[in-house]
Design a protein around this nucleic acid. Structure first.
Lengths: 132, 132
DNA sequence: TTCCTTAATGATAAATATTATCATTACATA
DNA sequence: TATGTAATGATAATATTTATCATTAAGGAA
C-alpha cells in the first residue's frame, strides 16, 4: 500500500505519481525511465524531484537501488531481499525468488561481519534466444 | 604472465604499464585509480588510453569489469569467476573464493538460458567494525 | 478554516564518469 | 628499413548524478 511507503514524508502529488508508477513495476527502471514515464501524466515534474524522491524512499527502505546495470542505477520497488536474472544481450532484469543457504566459513570471512548477499544470474532471455 | 594477457594486441609501453599495475592487484581499482597510478611512472599517459586498453583487455577476457560500485566501474585483473565481499561503510571490495551450487529449477528460469552467476556478500569490514 | 513553519519542488548549474573523434605516432611484419 | 595500420593523446561530447537555491505548498497548530 502506497501510503505506508511514504509514511513520515510529505505526501505530494509528485511523490504519489512516482510511487504509482513504481507500484508493481517489475522492469527495474532507471531514474530517467521513471522521469519519462511520470512526465506524461505530470508535465511539470522535475528531474531533481525524481532523484530527491528516490533518495527519500531509499532511506526509508521503501525502494532499493540496484547495482546491476553498469551504465546507471536502477530501482526496485520491492525492498525485500531477492535475486536477479540478467540478460547478457538486451540487459533486461527479472526478479528471481529462490533462497539459498550461502554459508561462509569463518576462515573465508576475512574479518567481515556479513549481513546479506545478492546473487546475479547471467544468461540469455527467451526473446534474445529466439532472435539468434 | 603479462604477455599472455596482451597476446594479439600491440605491446605498447602504455599497455605494459597498465598491465603491470593490474597484475596481482586485489583492490578492484576504477579507471581513474588506474590512470592516477600509472601516470606517476608514465607522465604522458592519457585517460583515453586507459579506457581503450581496459576495453581491449575486457574483450580478450584478460580483465573483467565489475558492476559492484554504484558510482563507477571497477576492474578485476582476475578474469576467473569468483565472488566478492563488500564493506557497506568504506566500500572496500575483497575477493571471496567459494564455489556454491546454485541450482535454478526449471520453473524459476523464466525461459532464460543461464550461463553464470555472481554473488555479492555485503557486510562490515574489520577496520570499519573497529572504528565504530 | 486559516496561519505558519518547514520540507519539497523546479530550474539550473556543477560534478563525475564514460564514450567519441581524429590528427599524429609508433608497433610489428614484410 | 619501409610501410600499413592500430594505438596514443588531446579534447570534445554525452550521460548520469549531485548540488544550489529561490519559490511553493503540505500539514500541524491555533
Amino acid at each position: 500500500m502506497i501510503k505506508n511507503k511514504i509514511k513520515g514524508l510529505k505526501m505530494t502529488p509528485q511523490r504519489l505519481a512516482i510511487l504509482a508508477y513504481l507500484e508493481g513495476n517489475i522492469d527495474h527502471p532507471s531514474a530517467d525511465d521513471i522521469y519519462k514515464a511520470v512526465l506524461k501524466k505530470f508535465p511539470t515534474m522535475s528531474f531533481a524531484t525524481v532523484y530527491n524522491t528516490l533518495e527519500s524512499l531509499k532511506n526509508r527502505g521503501s525502494v532499493s537501488e540496484l547495482t546491476i546495470d553498469p551504465d546507471k542505477k536502477r530501482f526496485d520497488p520491492n525492498p525485500d531481499p531477492h535475486n536477479h536474472l540478467i540478460c547478457n544481450k538486451c540487459r533486461k532484469i527479472l526478479d528471481i525468488h529462490i533462497d539459498y543457504e550461502l554459508r561462509v566459513p569463518y576462515e573465508k570471512k576475512q574479518g567481515f561481519e556479513i549481513t546479506g548477499n545478492h546473487i546475479k544470474f547471467y544468461g540469455i532471455c527467451p526473446k534474445c534466444r529466439r532472435g539468434k
